[in-house]
């Protein structure tokens, strides 16, 4: 039990913080309820997916600065192809966009492995490339999203045969997020591939000597990140109804949430639950400040300060822990 606590202390702390924030929200805004949860879930969805993607690649010892641009490419592709398409076609479009995301991630990974240039430099260069691609596909915001996709993340869950009062408090967007997580990350985490991600993240040369194909594993990690970027881009198109060629503020927020969620930059340690909780903590802080009608610019300051103070505290604690 104590070992479980020690191993998951950071995640449990975040869960506690999230619970405290939810209580605080309820106190600030007594009407906060089903619709509040729903809008929180929908606003957090692209951020959460971005954070998941970033967390995977950081665990594998890399970092992907081109993430927000890949999201933009997927978002505009989906919106452009879905405009006026039937339900069947738009389902095909979704699959195609997912494949596109994974392919873009694989290109990033392959370039890193082949050129032997540091991850951060390659993805910095690819940031411009994907940004340009998104602008070539769609020069200004436009396109459309299929209505069935939109209904996938709006409103509460309604299960047939169960009374709606039991399930409607649960936002569909949250279920969508958990479904993505379970469908992509859990099988990987349980398989050899997940173990190899952690192995190359903590020590690439040790992993190589234990027989891990480092290059191919790295490409796979970037491809998974690209897949999450596609999901993130789709979720942007789903919630706004259009494609947006200019990347949103997802890169910075994703890196912040990954670190806040207890994934170590440099790789090898951390899970995906912590980063998700961190996303909701950061979004909820923003929402609370808006509810208290604080100037949105002050909100940016508070958000940044929280992020910096938390990582500073984490750093100090880590140094202490190493000494004892």
């Amino acid at each position: 039990m104590t070992r479980f606590l020690a191993n998951n202390g950071w995640t449990l702390g975040l869960a506690g913080l999230l619970a405290m924030l939810l209580v605080a929200t309820k106190m600030i805004q007594p009407e906060f309820g089903v619709s509040g949860l729903d809008s929180l879930g929908r606003a957090s969805l692209p951020f959460a997916l971005a954070t998941l993607g970033m967390a995977v690649v950081v665990i594998a010892g890399g970092i992907d600065l081109s993430f927000a641009s890949m999201m933009a490419v997927c978002s505009v592709t989906a919106a452009l192809l879905m405009e006026g398409a039937s339900d069947g076609t738009s389902a095909l479009v979704v699959l195609a966009v997912l494949a596109l995301g994974a392919a873009m991630g694989a290109i990033n990974g392959t370039l890193i492995v082949v050129t032997r240039v540091p991850d951060i430099v390659v993805t910095l260069a690819m940031l411009f490339v994907w940004q340009g691609t998104a602008l070539l596909i769609l020069n200004a915001p436009g396109g459309a999203a299929a209505p069935w996709l939109r209904s996938l993340i709006v409103g509460g869950v309604a299960l047939p045969g169960v009374s709606p009062a039991l399930t409607e408090w649960l936002p569909k967007s949250l279920v969508f997020l958990l479904a993505c997580l379970c469908a992509i990350w859990l099988p990987i985490r349980r398989s050899k591939l997940g173990l190899m991600f952690y192995a190359i993240g903590s020590d690439a040369s040790a992993a190589f000597r234990s027989g891990v194909p480092v290059g191919r594993t790295k490409i796979a990690a970037y491809a998974v990140t690209g897949l999450f970027a596609a999901l993130g881009g789709l979720s942007v198109t789903m919630s706004t109804g259009i494609g947006e060629p200019i990347p949103g503020p997802y890169l910075l927020a994703a890196v912040a949430a990954v670190v806040l969620g207890g994934v170590v930059l440099g790789g090898g340690r951390g899970g995906l639950l912590g980063p998700i909780l961190a996303v909701f903590v950061l979004r909820l802080v923003r929402m609370d400040l808006t509810l208290m009608s604080v100037d949105p610019n002050v909100t940016t300051i508070v958000e940044g300060s929280i992020m910096v103070v938390v990582v500073m505290l984490g750093g100090v604690l880590a140094t202490r822990g190493r000494r004892t």
Partner: peptide, 24 residues
Amino acid sequence: AICRVHPLIMTLGTGLIATGCLLV
């Protein structure tokens, strides 16, 4: 230096805070 935060994170964070201060 003191808290041993990764420079990438630290400078991104201060950049974010400073931008907020500038807007205010």
